[in-house]
C-alpha cells in the first residue's frame, strides 16, 4: 500500500546544507554569479566595448553596477565571465558597484536588525514583477530550501510580518498599496528588495510607466541583486537582515 509518508521517506533528505555547510553546484547556477572582467584584460577598452553591448546600462566605462545587471550574458563576449562571488547583497546600492569590473570586495558592513530576533515572518509584495522573483521567494518554503528550519516563515498579512519582501519594478497604481502594506507592518520592521527590478528597474529601468527605484517609495534595508536571484541568494539576504548572514560557501565541483 503506497503512502505519502513512505513516499517522503524514500525521497530522503533533500534540504540544502546551506547555511551550515557549502552549497551544492545545483544551487548555484552559472547566472547566479555576477559577471567579472577577466583579470588578464586591460579594463578600459574591454569596459568601453561592453558598455555598448550591455542592454541595461549596468556597465559603464568605469565599472559594473551589479544591481542593474540582469545576467543576460552579453558581456561574456567582451571578456566578462560569470565568476564572481555568488550572492552579494548590500545595504546600499552603491556597494554593488565594482570599479574596473572586477569582483566586488567583501563587505561586512551590511545593516542588520538584531531586533528581528531568530524567528522571521516574511510578507511578500509584488510591485510589478514578471513572477519569476515571486516564485523564487516562495521557493524558500519547498523541501530543497525549507526556510522554516531557520525560523523563517511566510505570513498572509502584513500585520503579522517582520520583513516586507518586495519584488518587481514599482508601477504607478501599486505605489500606494505598497506604502500601505509597509505601514501595516508592526515594528521593528525591515524591507528586503529582491531582484534587479526592485533595485534599479532592471531591464525596465527608465520605462515611463514605472517608478523605479523602489527606494524612492520605501526605506529599503537590503538589496539582493539578480534577475531573478536564486532562492539561496534570497535566503542569504534574509539571514543577513537578521544579522545571521555569513556568505555562501560553495562545494568544490
Amino acid at each position: 500500500m503506497p503512502s505519502w509518508i513512505g513516499q517522503a521517506f524514500r525521497r530522503g533528505i533533500l534540504t540544502s546544507r546551506f547555511p551550515r555547510g557549502p552549497a551544492s553546484p545545483e544551487e548555484v547556477p552559472e547566472t547566479s554569479r555576477p559577471p567579472v572582467l577577466s583579470p588578464t584584460l586591460d579594463p578600459a577598452p574591454a569596459l568601453s566595448r561592453a558598455t555598448e553591448d550591455c542592454p541595461t546600462g549596468a556597465i559603464d566605462p568605469e565599472g559594473l553596477h551589479h544591481g542593474r545587471c540582469i545576467r543576460c550574458a552579453r558581456c561574456t563576449r567582451q571578456g566578462f565571465a560569470f565568476g564572481g562571488r555568488a550572492h552579494p547583497c548590500a545595504s546600499r546600492p552603491e556597494d554593488l558597484y565594482s570599479a574596473g569590473g572586477g569582483p566586488l570586495p567583501e563587505r561586512e558592513a551590511n545593516r542588520a536588525l538584531a531586533a528581528l530576533g531568530r524567528s522571521l515572518q516574511l510578507f511578500l509584495v509584488d510591485a510589478g514583477s514578471c513572477l519569476a522573483c515571486n516564485l523564487e521567494v516562495l521557493a524558500l518554503a519547498n523541501p530543497y530550501y525549507d526556510a522554516s528550519r531557520l525560523g523563517i516563515t511566510f505570513v498572509n498579512s502584513p500585520h503579522h510580518a517582520d520583513v516586507l519582501v518586495v519584488v518587481g519594478i514599482p508601477t504607478e497604481p501599486l505605489l500606494e498599496p505598497l506604502r500601505r502594506a509597509y505601514e501595516a507592518l508592526p515594528g521593528p520592521k525591515a524591507v528586503l528588495a529582491v531582484g534587479a527590478c526592485a533595485l534599479e528597474g532592471g531591464i525596465f529601468r527608465g520605462n515611463p510607466r514605472t517608478r523605479a527605484p523602489l527606494s524612492d517609495t520605501l526605506p529599503v534595508d537590503l538589496f539582493v541583486p539578480g534577475c531573478p536571484p536564486t532562492p539561496l541568494d534570497i535566503l542569504e539576504g534574509v539571514l543577513t537582515l537578521a544579522g545571521r548572514g555569513r556568505g555562501i560557501q560553495e562545494a568544490p565541483p
Binding site: 509584488d126 510589478g128 501599486l174 525596465f204 520605462n207 510607466r209
Partner: peptide
C-alpha cells in the same frame, strides 16, 4: 495595475 509598459 501591473502594466510595466513592455509593449510600448
Amino acid at each position: 495595475q501591473k502594466s510595466r509598459g513592455i509593449l510600448g
